[in-house]
Design a protein around this nucleic acid. Structure first.
Lengths: 337, 337
DNA sequence: ACATTTGTTTTAATCGATTAAAATACTATT
DNA sequence: AATAGTATTTTAATCGATTAAAACAAATGT
């Protein structure tokens, strides 16, 4: 790479000091009372030499990088692409850049990523925490690193967060099945300790309870993330033979895998099996019928997360637990009501 | 944020110089002949004070950030999630971090992203160029910025690149239809100047020619990216009424939208219409039958791109145009052969 | 003529690391 | 005790910016 042009080079070229050049390059010519002629010459020289300020040197001096670190759970999730877009857009509005990494639901990788980002002096972090990452989160807290959790959080930790009311959302989805006259709704979830997915389970259970339907353990399927395809296949078979008349998938990924198997078994949706999913997927578009699903306000989550983080960074000691409502999108996969 | 612990703080704590601490923190104690006792004390103090090296200060001094800038075309593409994963993994093996941004197929945003990354002193760039970004690419070349183009490139520009043989891939896909006795294969593509998509078109045309099938303009659909849904809908109607017996979609996104419409029109695949796609999508899993498609060697593209870029960065003046072969995945959407 | 004011520019320290070269502290040898 | 040799540590410049404070220059007032 060609040697880069520095402030010094412009200064030398014109026989002025670097201070003057710096003032002009930062558009402080008026405050600092730089002669108009000089400013013009400096600007011209900068353009001529194709000067690009070294952001790193600047950051070192001002102790601020205007960078947000974002750690997502898996780059392949639809939630991830959405939230990344939303956060990038919102950050940009505030002149921040986003550096981004995916933990792939692995707590070691999560920790490593967080450390890399901190070493790169990001001004703050937006995190989608993974299973077993509480310790790392606590450490961040202890070290006063500005951060906001999104999508997921730990009820035992008093952190800033932006998420949705998963209990309510799941309750709503399950209730929708029941109201549409399904008597034996099954539930497919990950086998996990993650709070937000536990909440979805409790929501499901609460809906059954409030409707006087007895919880049937063989209608609750919990699959291992590492053995998704295998476990889902078994799960769908189990719930059909256990007499489920409908199923609520806790995530879009689970729904896709589930529907794949439902297709393979030639089970008709919604006639033979009602289906509700939480979160949607592009894949749903190719299914025989539109899938009814809960929908997260992704853009809003991104906005709130960035806003909260910037407040933290600017030393406004905020404490915010923002719980947003999710939408519900009526499809044709479980009746019309 | 709590004031961070610097080298100086450790040095002061122990009453030694920063040089000594630096040597130990970089595991150069043996080369630099640091006393074992001292090294131990320094390490302990670093741990006790929770020292985290300031990567920015280091980068400024050594004039290297160990960072690769990646600009993708759209974060929602499946190609993007795959290539990002592959590049991140490969970069990590070489102790590089990836900073990443999405241009959303917009050349202004592309240019802006490239500039942000350069100002942040990335050591090099991996770029998926967009329409009308030639000028920016030429500028990079003129300024000796190390970069590698992937997926797409400009035949008029002599740059390092890693891509696939799109002509051949499209030829193969089209030929597959013809060999399976389809006489009137249609082609759905974006309306674009992008070379790689033009190549796919030429591949389609060549296959027809070599099979003695006359090119029928009304079987070639070109949709505007900004009006995808609208144009695809019209296009599918057009090609069916023009008597197409099969269709080759130039990308997975086009295929999804196309199949959605094919479903809506209750056209049976493969009986009434054969389908081949280039690139696959998770969505295909929910279609009535597995979709036959060309597949890019994404991991390999990522590996080669990183390898080439690192060679460039390390001043090995390489010139590489790596054109990889794509695979072909047999489904059931256009016969069995 | 000198002090004061206003306008413009420079000086020099600083951010947190790295590192070549110099300095200092030991040990061993004669 | 002087010298040489080795081991260990410190000094100080540097990367490319920022910025408070000092310096300089020209214009104005008395």
């Amino acid at each position: 790479m060609k040697k880069k042009v520095a402030l010094k080079d412009i200064a030398k070229e014109l026989g002025v000091s670097t201070a003057l050049v710096s003032y002009v390059m930062n558009n402080q010519e008026v405050e600092k009372g730089v002669n108009k002629e000089s400013a013009k010459k400096i600007r011209e020289a900068a353009a001529r030499l194709n000067y690009r300020p070294n952001q790193i040197a600047k950051s070192l001096k001002i102790n601020k990088t205007y960078t947000i670190g974002l750690v997502v759970a898996d780059i392949a999730y639809r939630f991830t692409t959405g939230i990344t877009r939303a956060i990038e857009a919102e950050a940009k509005k505030n002149k921040y850049t986003v550096i981004f990494g995916s933990s792939d639901e692995n707590s070691d990788k999560f920790q490593e990523l967080v450390n890399v980002l901190i070493n790169r002096q990001v001004d703050g972090l937006i995190l989608v925490p993974v299973e077993n990452s509480e310790k790392e989160i606590e450490l961040l807290q202890k070290n006063d690193v500005p951060f906001v959790l999104i999508d997921r959080y730990f009820p035992g930790l008093d952190t800033n967060l932006v998420a949705i009311d998963n209990h309510k959302a799941a309750y709503q989805c399950t209730m929708h099945l029941i109201k549409n006259n399904y008597k034996r709704p099954a539930f497919v979830n990950y086998k996990t300790k993650l709070f937000h997915l536990q909440e979805r389970k409790y929501g499901y259970e609460q809906a059954l309870k409030d409707s006087g339907i007895k919880l049937n353990e063989s209608l609750v399927i919990e699959v291992r993330e590492k053995h998704l395809e295998e476990d889902i296949k078994k799960g769908i078979k189990q719930l059909t033979s256990a007499g489920a008349d409908s199923v609520f998938f806790a995530t879009d990924i689970l729904a896709i895998q589930g529907l794949k198997n439902i297709n393979a078994l030639k089970i008709k949706v919604p006639k033979e099996l009602g289906v509700v999913s939480f979160d949607e997927s592009e894949a749903f578009e190719l299914f025989n019928c539109p899938i009814t699903h809960g929908r997260q306000p992704i853009v809003e989550i991104g906005k709130q997360a960035v806003a909260t983080l910037l407040d933290l960074i600017n030393n406004n000691r905020v404490k915010r637990k923002i719980i947003l409502e999710s939408d519900f999108v009526q499809g044709e996969s479980c009746g019309e009501a």
